[in-house]
Write a protein that binds this DNA or RNA. Structure first.
Lengths: 323, 323
DNA sequence: ATGAAAGCGCTAACAC
DNA sequence: GTGTTAGCGCTTTCAT
């Protein structure tokens, strides 16, 4: 920057003004400066800028695993939302290392103006302790007792809708393939199941621990077949797809022999054979709302009203009347 | 930091030394300082640190679309590799906005110590012009004439292997579902096709423009059916899966009526019905090599020997002898 | 072993 | 309108 200033015969301050398009700088001078910038191929240091301004215009995202299309979509949607306000997104995948989630979050937050934390399995106490040091911070699919901006998918209601759909098709014996025990969103699905049971004594819903990945669904297929249920509610689409893969391989026809539903409406759900009945979630809407609140917090407001987004049933080919 | 210094009754320099575990600091003093840090909940500013050191220990990644499992895996593998050296990864998805790729890359590079560019469709001249301003920089699946660290998947050879596999199964009329025309990796696949043709005059391989997404594969299914080929080589697994979805929906049996192969070996390829025959790519290996070279460049060495990784055939259920 | 002070590249009063 | 100057929070000589 000093070089530019010298080259253009002005002061660093003027260069700074030109870069930031300050209106108080003379036409001619500005052009000279711009010429020097172009000639010397100068690029302002964003690091120095951040330090001086105390602001980086960067949003941090911490997520467990972007290969899960659901997590990827929250990230991607956030990036889109943030980009609309001129913010970049720095993301860190915590992968298997749940133990490093906290320190990762702290580190990421340190380089950014705000952070969104996607940590479905982080211990609640640990999270509650962490949150105050992370402000402004948003949390996805968890409750925080007002410690953060929060947006949640209404998994409980989603599961209720799924059960209702299967019920209408005549299914009375249902099986839920449960996700990670410690996952908050799994617990909500379980709660949804409970209220569905309560509302309909004629219904039997069993729970089978399974997991959250393709391989988990695939692995559970045999137990599902022998279980006797006619309708299966998978933890999510990924599990449902893994399950269906194995089922079809073994000659079980979905939906003729067995109806299967997932959750999330990932891209592939529409193209599987049969296409998957599932709950679609407006993640872009969730991200937009979250980002709006976060931006307000960055500007000093307090926005702690939890956002609850309702998923909607998408009926495709993997469900049919009870055999 | 000043507060810590005052609280502990030492100077800022000493605090800095304690933070950086300098050995030249007295045991007792160090403990006092650490106590103050803990008590006041102090976290050093990485931004200031970066500015002072001229180094951020962060790697930037620019990729078009992380929802593509292939791109996601290069990102994820890079993050794993970089994490091993204590580096964070800042990623930006350029999404549809190919026009913003350059400026995004510049911006990201500006906040990081190095960058890896995944831009299969960026104009070559634009890229060649951009590269010098991005050093140290690595590029995936493109050639740069020595302007950058590069790692490439040998798509040409992969396609040759795929053709050979189908040929052995008796297929003589093949159809290639081509990806984006401007994509470098698509051009390499085409080159592979050409050498396969040259080596085997008895073989007929047609090319049909299709795309790179699920929906593209899905959409092409009808034309594929009427085309008459008995073996289909999809641009990648995503296209293959989209195609198979529609095919099975329409009662075409894969692999009995038609053999289908993909490329990349994405996670779901193993769980589709039928599981997909495809070319597996050791992306973690590619990322490790790339990161090794990049790290060397960060340290001032020059590492421009292109890395070429050979994919390997994974035979699953989507291919069978010609009907 | 510790402190004082300069400097990383930028912005923002404040002066002219 | 433009230049001067003081800082943003840290690291790192150079003294002591």
């Amino acid at each position: 920057m000093k070089e530019i200033a010298e080259h253009a015969g002005v002061s660093k301050a003027t260069v700074s003004r030109v870069i930031n398009a300050s209106p108080t700088v003379g036409r001619e001078i500005a052009d000279t400066v711009r010429a020097s910038i172009a000639e010397l191929g100068y690029r302002p240091s964003l690091t120095a800028r951040s330090l001086s301004l105390g602001v980086s215009r960067t949003l941090g995202v911490v997520a467990p695993d972007l290969s899960n299309p659901m997590f990827h979509r929250v990230f991607s949607s956030l990036q889109r939302a943030a980009a609309g306000s001129g913010y970049r997104v720095l993301v860190a995948e915590t992968l298997e290392d749940a133990s490093l989630e906290s320190s990762t979050a702290i580190d990421i937050r340190n380089r950014t103006d705000a952070i969104v934390l996607v940590a479905p399995r982080m211990d609640r106490l640990e999270m509650l302790e962490l949150l105050p040091t992370l402000q402004p911070v948003a949390v996805v699919n968890r409750t925080t007792g007002g410690q953060a901006v929060v947006a949640r998918v209404d998994y409980a209601q989603g599961v209720v809708d799924l059960v209702a759909h299967l019920r209408e098709l005549g299914h009375r014996r249902l099986l839920f393939l449960s996700g990670p025990e410690s996952s908050r969103s799994n617990q909500e699905r379980l709660a949804g199941l409970e209220s569905a049971r309560a509302a309909d004594p004629d219904l039997r819903i069993d729970v089978m621990p399974c997991g959250h990945g393709f391989d988990d669904g695939y692995r559970c297929a045999d137990s599902v077949r022998t279980h006797g249920a006619t309708g299966v509610i998978a933890f999510n689409d990924v599990v449902a797809l893994g399950l269906m893969g194995k089922l079809l391989e073994d000659g079980v026809s979905v939906p003729r022999d067995l109806s299967v539903v997932g959750f999330d409406d990932i891209a592939f759900a529409r193209y599987s054979a049969p296409p998957l009945t599932t709950m679609a979630v407006d993640l872009q809407g969730l991200a937009d709302a979250l980002w709006g609140d976060l931006l307000a917090e960055i500007d000093g407001e307090q926005r702690r009203e939890p956002r609850l987004v309702a998923p909607s049933l998408v009926i495709r080919g993997s469900t049919a009347p009870r055999p």
